[in-house]
Nucleic acid binder design. Structure first.
Lengths: 162, 162
DNA sequence: TGTTGACTTAAACCACAGTTTAAGTCGTAG
DNA sequence: CTACGACTTAAACTGTGGTTTAAGTCAACA
């Protein structure tokens, strides 16, 4: 059995946060000693691992509470629990794709600034006679990207960025 | 030139959110017409694309404001802007790895529930004579994962999950 | 020449996810 | 036996990221 402080240390979660989760119905399984102190079992830690994973995946506290309720209800909710995790898997896969898209865009801008730094001015990307970025700039990057061997050569500034 | 409503529609951002970003100093470059209405240029949309990317990457509004200030300051900040995006690239790469780790864990739990549903009870994963998950359960999954051809066969329930 | 509809502002309001505070209860080590 | 540290609660507070409201301005169209 572990105290709330033990769990907080082991899981890297603030004790106040654990009490907050308890208040929100995420920890209905946690036992208490005679003095009313929370006593976490080894199995409780498995639960908290799931809760922590869902939390880090961006699932709202109240939704996690719903899942915990299903867990408390026994074998009749097994299918529903599976379906819930299946949905979350899809969410995470989407999130992974989105993050990748943001990374791709960020790398384009890194290239934009790498080449600007090398040229000493951002103007190399402006449409002639304006202070606006040439609409073709991104297409140029994408062409270079398609032809390049090593992404790092394309977007990383040599050494001196430290 | 585009109105705030045009931009909101094109970028999929609430007009109120755009005004909020402006108040927070994220849109100092936006022009106004005689009546005080915001007029967004094509180049402003490039900026908003960057802001939107950073926002979706989880960068706090005030940090984005700092980056925008650098952009306003001209060529002398090119290197700093590059370094900023380089740091954000690392952040996003870390985030990608974290999300992948959460996905891996979620898939373990999907397997846990798939096999439980197939058995009709969660008890197949409990240590004998207890109501606690056997500490070896995850190791069993990882062994099966290492040997399996197709992840979907391992963790997806046949058809009827619809 | 109204009267829409889209815009403007400041200020109030909201949800979410905790964190902090204040007051109190235990168990144990000196 | 008392003092300390770790725990308990309810309630107040915080920060972030907006959204909503109220009151007003303006351009264009019937």
């Amino acid at each position: 059995m572990y105290s709330i402080g033990d769990v907080a240390t082991m899981m890297g979660i603030n004790p106040s946060a654990l009490r907050f989760y308890d208040r929100q119905g995420l920890l209905p399984f946690v036992a208490r000693d005679k003095a009313g102190r929370r006593q976490f079992s080894k199995n409780d830690l498995n639960f908290i691992e799931v809760i922590d994973c869902l939390k880090k995946s961006g699932v709202p506290v109240k939704d996690i509470g719903h899942f915990v309720q299903l867990c408390m209800a026994g074998d009749s909710t097994l299918h529903e629990r599976y379906a819930y995790l299946d949905k979350e898997e899809q969410m995470l896969q989407d999130k992974l794709r989105e993050t990748q898209a943001q990374l791709d865009f960020l790398r384009y801008k890194k290239w934009y600034y790498k080449t600007s730094v090398e040229a000493g001015t951002e103007k190399i990307h402006f449409a002639p006679g304006t202070n606006e970025v040439d609409p073709q700039t991104k297409a140029i990057y994408q062409k270079e990207l398609a032809h390049c061997q090593n992404l790092r050569d394309l977007i990383d500034l040599a050494q001196d960025d430290a």
